[in-house]
Amino acid sequence: MLRNWWKVITVLLLLYVVTGGLLMDVPRLNILNETVRALYFHVPMWFGMIIMLAISVVYAVKYLRGSNAHFDTVSVEFANVGIVFGVLGILTGMLWAQFTWDDWWSGDPKQNASAIGLLIYLAYFVLRGSLEDPMQKARIGAVYNIFAFAALIPLLFILPRMTDSLHPGNGGNPGFNAYDLDNRLRITFYPAVMGWTLLGVWMATVRIRIRKIDTILEL
């Protein structure tokens, strides 16, 4: 029980986010209105994805430094969870866009960039699938992982900022940037980011344990 204190925190945080996020008062912003609550579900997905993928890259580097199969498993599973977060982020974003921009997909720079980002990481799994030798799979996978992450950063953080985006806070749209992010939003937003990220780590650790059991059973 004591070892799993952070899991208890995760559950509590997410219970609070789901109930509080849907029920508590939110500020009225033009266009956004009640959909501002997507901030608790959509935005943390991207935070979660970036954090998961960053952990994945760290373990890929660790693997290249000292070929330990455990590091490779960690790297793969965090990338897996990162992709799940990315897909959820796109889906929640599309749902939200349907109500605010009146279109599921409006070719917004951030929408496109995140779709490309997912393609890059899906290619990572295709690459791993097409290699047979486990050692080679791990090493080449790690190399590509680092390369992919380096391509992802300009894609998500630099390119969308160079053009106007429909996203709140960009191009004169009302949003929740430094000035608009209201205390009423913050009180749920920060726990939401922490809760969803911890849930991601939890998912990854479970998957890593499953993989470990698998390898032991195979031997």
Binding site: I116, L119, A123, L127, S130, L131, I140, V143, A151
Partner: peptide, 26 residues
């Protein structure tokens, strides 16, 4: 670099496009 990675795998020509295009996009 992509072709160096792809050359290690089977059906590397397809893989070359799959790996390369998303990375080239920016």
């Amino acid at each position: 670099m992509t072709s160096a990675i792809a050359s290690k795998a089977r059906n590397s020509q397809t893989l070359m496009a799959v790996l390369g295009f998303p990375i080239i996009l920016p």
